[in-house]
Design a protein around this nucleic acid. Sequence first.
DNA 1: CCAAAAGTGTTCCGTCTACACCCATGG
DNA 2: CCATGGGTGTAGACGGAACACTTTTGG
Lengths: 225, 225
Amino acid sequence: MTGYYGEHSKVWVSVDCIIFGFDHGKLELLIGRRQMDPGRGEWSLYGGFVSPEETLEEAASRVLLSLTGLKKVYMRQVGAFSAVDRDPGERVISVAFCALINVKDYDDTLRKEYGLEWVDVQTLPPLYSDHNEMVKQAIGLLRRRIATEPLYFNLLPDLFTLTQLQHVYEAILGEEIDKRNFRKRVKTMHFIEQTSLVDKQTSKRGAQLYRFNKRNLGSSSSFKL
Amino acid sequence: MTGYYGEHSKVWVSVDCIIFGFDHGKLELLIGRRQMDPGRGEWSLYGGFVSPEETLEEAASRVLLSLTGLKKVYMRQVGAFSAVDRDPGERVISVAFCALINVKDYDDTLRKEYGLEWVDVQTLPPLYSDHNEMVKQAIGLLRRRIATEPLYFNLLPDLFTLTQLQHVYEAILGEEIDKRNFRKRVKTMHFIEQTSLVDKQTSKRGAQLYRFNKRNLGSSSSFKL
DNA sequence: CCAAAAGTGTTCCGTCTACACCCATGG
DNA sequence: CCATGGGTGTAGACGGAACACTTTTGG
């Protein structure tokens, strides 16, 4: 402690994780009942305080790892939230992060252990503090980014059908897409590769499985899908 | 102090202001020599610590007001920067804000008082700490937002010529635009109104002056300009 | 009279959109 | 055999990109 900034006050800084998954054809969010005061028992995002020897990104990854067991997850900073009374107990500034995970990779026993639930983003209950606003901004961020970044793969298993991909797309955009136009555009995206495998889970006829190939990403100058 | 979060540590939180202006046909940035240790004398963005009774946005507005005398400035949060050693003195998390101001509204005596300089964003010197990265992200934000938000008016006087508007556009995008195509698109944007006034500063022939009309914003479903 | 900036239309091409029917198969 | 989801093509509209010359006037 060299005391450069001693005349100024410090504040608590936390991170909150907005964890999106795709299941039941919907975009879903992982939330839980808050385990501490103030606000104990309210629906809430999961978060944690930032310690002196970690970055915000590290803190968010730490929280995410503890909740889901997952590392190397797609994650983006949504923004800092700082209303003076946003936390009813103390002055806490929180930085929201959104993460996209593949629900199938996620160990459901961890979910139960923490008492977490997947809820449809369309029918979110009121959340603790400003967490609803955080979610709203996170969805806005996804919508803006999906046109220029292949986000969707993070929400799907390694192999997926075009129908699944389309549903992810529709869930994020919040609107329906024409199947034929969608498939036409996918054909032009060389980082989406057809495999010879067929999925027969959801249809009698069976659907071709596709795969994301990162190596072909550069070759598509712009993916607007 | 109710002591809810006593077991966690607090950190200093600051804001840094990335102040863009448009002059000499370029996008310019207002920077100064750092007045305090550590880093005294290095080129730097201007910032300030967040006090317990203000939000980040309020802190950024306070800094901006003190530097420029301007209130009600267009301002957006760029993001939080939190590398543990980003500040050589102490652990400080900083939230960057970018602001767009009209250079003509700005009192140049204040600039001299603080020892600030306008520098072309294309030829920025190395800045203190991670400030170059903040600027880079801010420019990225402007480029993404300019397609969906009429940012440019914040950089121009109330009355402006189409050539000026085009130059702002080119400065933000970093590429040249065809004059005829540009003017065609402007004609479809009903929130840009022609006035009967003529500016003769820059040409012998004179150029029509235009004005931004907020009331017509809604009527244009999407401004893609 | 000429330099310097303002102003103006058309054509082409590629992209997005709207739209409806056949296919394969398990039960 | 039929219900269910998978898969396919075309035509018209629209928007963006390329492109060059005329106008005005102060000096």
